[in-house]
């Protein structure tokens, strides 16, 4: 009877072993400390483009192990500059402190501009009260001085004081859901919308503390969709994918009037929250790892750049600067 138990156990283990060995048959591993791997981290905004290219690349190069994640631009650079990743996506340019960090660890890199994103300020599709906001409105609603406002009307006084176009605001609940401080999308928003006014008024250069900060773009979307007069911001692609639940507000930089984010307005720069998206490639690793060079080559090929549009972002008009930078790495 006990022999049976053991036989059954051995059989089960053998089954499991064959099941997981099943796709190893063509195993042609490079061996030697796991060469043949590409690890990509960084911005969750850039992640869809890099992941799509990783998928296309993996089909052509099945012997390469490739992983793509998107914890946020800031966290991505931390890892990248510690040598823990090969490529880091970024929805803003590298900061001085980060490039010093890279230099201190002997990480050399090349910056490649791969796409343009329009940081989209969102609300629920049921929101009929608000259609456009200017930077001063956004500062009054989301800036450091708005701490504690849970109704749009509470920001009216601040908005009028700043001379915001759309103040006073409606009497409606205000719930803000957006990316947290690890995110380049947060950094971009603060840089574009809050920085100048905060400096002028001697305030902390940051968004209010009491918005719902999530690293998960879907949580942000469902948070924005959750209440009719919500507010938040994400990368353009996440807006495009969720147009049935969220709507983008037009944004006014104070000069050119209200502009809605569309692929045209983002491409020609008339949308005020347009920003470049980058990948940063570790060049010393590229010198040692052919598969990394192959991947970036593929990224900048016609097929690779097609991923930009496929994921909902806007392609650059001209990639010669990007390919030039890669060639001269």
């Amino acid at each position: 009877m006990l022999t049976k138990t053991w036989t059954a156990l051995v059989l089960v283990l053998a089954l499991i072993a064959t099941a997981c060995g099943g796709d190893d048959t063509s195993g042609e591993g490079d061996g030697g400390g796991g060469a043949g791997t590409i690890v990509i981290s960084g911005s969750s905004t850039v992640e869809p483009i890099s992941a799509r290219n990783a998928q296309k690349f993996a089909e052509l190069n099945p012997d390469v192990t490739i992983s793509v994640e998107g914890p946020g631009t800031g966290d991505g650079f931390k890892k990248f500059c510690a040598g823990a990743t090969d490529i880091s996506g970024a929805s803003r340019a590298i900061q001085d402190s980060e490039s010093e960090d890279c230099a201190a660890n002997g990480v050399d890199y090349v910056e490649l501009n791969v796409a343009i994103d329009g940081l989209s300020v969102l609300t629920s599709i049921n929101n009929t009260a608000v259609g456009c906001l200017d930077f001063k409105d956004l500062y009054a609603l989301i800036g450091p001085e708005s701490l504690g406002f849970d109704n749009w009307s509470q920001a009216s006084a601040l908005g009028s004081e700043l001379g915001a176009t759309h103040a006073p605001y409606p009497d409606a609940p205000l719930v803000i859901t957006a990316p947290g401080e690890e995110s380049g999308t947060y950094d971009t928003f603060v840089e574009f919308v809050i920085e100048d006014l905060a400096e002028e008024r001697g305030q902390e250069n940051a968004a209010r503390l009491d918005y719902v900060a999530s690293p998960n773009d879907n949580t942000i979307i469902s948070g924005i969709a959750g209440s009719d007069t919500s507010l938040g911001w994400v990368g353009y692609a996440f807006f495009v994918e969720n147009q049935d639940t969220v709507a983008a507000l037009a944004v006014d930089d104070g000069e050119s009037g209200c502009v809605e984010p569309t692929s045209e307005s983002i491409a020609d720069g008339s949308y005020p929250l347009s920003r470049p998206l980058f990948i940063y490639v570790n060049t010393s690793k590229a010198a040692a790892k052919q598969e990394l060079v192959d991947y970036v080559d593929f990224y900048l090929s016609e097929d690779g750049l097609a991923s930009v549009g496929e994921t909902g972002y806007v392609a650059l008009a001209d990639y010669s600067e990007t390919t030039g930078a890669w060639a001269n790495r």
């Binding site: 994640e69 914890p71 966290d75 650079f77 931390k78 890892k79 823990a84 401080e181 690890e182």
Partner: peptide, 9 residues
């Protein structure tokens, strides 16, 4: 701490 001791900030 998602996978790294390298966090921003």
């Amino acid at each position: 701490a998602t996978g790294s001791d390298q966090v921003a900030g």
